[in-house]
Design a protein around this nucleic acid. Structure first.
Lengths: 229, 229
DNA sequence: ATAGGTTTAATGGTTCAACCATTAGCTGGC
DNA sequence: GCCAGCTAATGGTTGAACCATTAAACCTAT
């Protein structure tokens, strides 16, 4: 019947007010909030409490804070980037079974590949093939895996961008920044493995070029499944 | 060639040290950190700076803070829950095209339905059918849409749980807490709409009962597509 | 007049000290 | 043995002071 009285902390109230103002558009991207010493009067809180609130908003990627005269809190643009921290923590904590992460990744990147295949135009395909060219060159010239890994990442990122859905773009970034970097360390560098890997990428890009979403999805999943061991 | 010198703030250093300790297991779930007045000595920072660090860690869901004697910061378990805040901000900001959100949701929930169909045992199916029974009853008895909406949410959540992948479970929660709640307000309450909606749920559950992943996925996507308008 | 340095003031970053509010545990009286 | 009240530990909050960084105003020498 009754709810537990929630513990109120003044900084939380400040966070909620500013957050609400940002999300509902009262505060717009790029706008500068008043100085701390002014804000603390507005909210009638101490500077310490206000600063705790600003720390939280900064952590949420809702504001940036600039130092010096004329500095202060500036409202950031809200983008799917805000989803990256969570996934990053999840991976780094290793509290979630690797299988679950792998499954999630295969589903996400499979969908990305499918959508990319359905939506890629000639220019997109050309860009993908150019990246493949670089990858092939770095393999042939024995430039080592450094350049190759970079090319691989670019293929994945480009596919995400082709979908035109920024959510996928940022999730792909988060995956690369976390999961993939982890695997990359254990990736064997011998030639046959890299060649298989390269062939996978070719298969995916070819499917995209053909506009065959299902095949692109399947090839991507095969590719990731092989990596995951 | 050179990198921009990053601005160092003492609280950030404290955050990183504690975060690292939590993620690498030096600090384990449930463990209690020393009192603020002790921690500030350990890190050689002021209590204000330390508290800013604790606010950030709290926001990241890495610690809980208890009040009173014997209170203090307690290390939380890291779960996919940490991903919810980002998605929540994204939806509330309305800065991301509804189409993108809808597409993302259809892909995620489609995958959930497919996995659930592939993995559901007899008990799972029985649970789903029981929920459908409640939904049907609330429709027949004209109990209004309140009970029905709740049953609908339970179907989605149960499917996510059946996948056995906690990432999907939490993403589904985030979706329900944000996207779905938004749509629910605009859902028409007239009988024919609700009946169509109910029929969708039946189709999905039937596909799951048959172990037909593809059909479950398709039905789920159809269902969501109809809602999105 | 302009280039270049210097001063000034605004502003975030940090610290310290004090006090309040909540809570767990102890203590003493019944 | 139990309950009331006291005590101390601990997070919550405040105010004041000072430091570090930055932008803008202000000189000064050529």
């Amino acid at each position: 019947m009754f709810e537990q009285v929630k513990q109120t902390r003044v900084y939380q109230d400040v966070v909620e007010q500013i957050e609400e103002a940002i999300l509902n558009g009262t505060l717009t991207t790029g706008e500068k909030l008043p100085a701390e010493r002014e804000l603390k009067e507005t909210f009638s809180v101490s500077r310490g409490a206000l600063r705790e609130a600003l720390r939280v908003l900064e952590q949420k990627r809702l504001i940036d804070i600039q130092l010096g005269a004329g500095g202060g809190a500036i409202v950031r643009e809200v983008t799917p980037e805000v989803m990256m921290d969570g996934l990053s923590l999840l991976v780094r904590s290793q509290k979630v079974p690797l299988e679950s992460l792998k499954e999630f990744r295969m589903d996400i990147e499979g969908n990305i590949a499918r959508l990319a295949a359905e939506r890629a135009n000639a220019e997109d395909v050309a860009r993908l093939q150019a990246i493949l060219g670089l990858a092939k060159a770095s393999l042939d010239n024995q430039e080592g895996w450094e350049a190759y890994v970079q090319a691989d990442a670019q293929v994945h990122m480009t596919l995400a961008r082709i979908t035109g859905n920024t959510i996928y773009e940022y999730i792909q970034t988060a995956i690369h920044e976390n999961i993939n970097r982890y695997y990359a360390e254990f990736l064997e560098h011998d030639e046959s493995v890299l060649c298989d890997h390269y062939q996978d990428l070719c298969n995916i890009v070819n499917a995209v070029a053909d506009g065959d979403g299902e095949r692109a999805c399947d090839q991507m999943r095969l590719h990731l499944n092989r990596l995951g061991k």
